[in-house]
Amino acid sequence: MQTQARLDATLAALSDSTRRAILARLVEGEATVQELAAPFAISQPAISRHIRVLSDAGLIVQRVDGPRRPCRLAPGALSELDDYLAMLRRALEKNYARLDRLLAQETQDKDTL
């Protein structure tokens, strides 16, 4: 998949709270579809559809283990988005720490602003 399309698929997959909860669970380690379905009041086919979306987006991978299809996070799945957001966050944190200092300074100086 093209990187652009992959980012779109990643964001679409992450736009659903059930899918985010599934990912949060998988951060702890591999889980079967049944285990993933357990906390939710929705059917196993519905969970399977969410898993399919996550899998198509390249966020998780499934392996075959007899009758079971355990899921786990795909290595580096969120790294593109992660890298971008981490960069943005870092730049903004620096900016606003500077602004904090400017605002504090001007409180001392009284109405230079």
Partner: peptide, 13 residues
């Protein structure tokens, strides 16, 4: 200088 972080957990999950 960008660091790998667990930001994705707070951010996306």
């Amino acid at each position: 200088g960008m660091e790998a972080s667990y930001a994705r957990l707070e951010v996306t999950l």
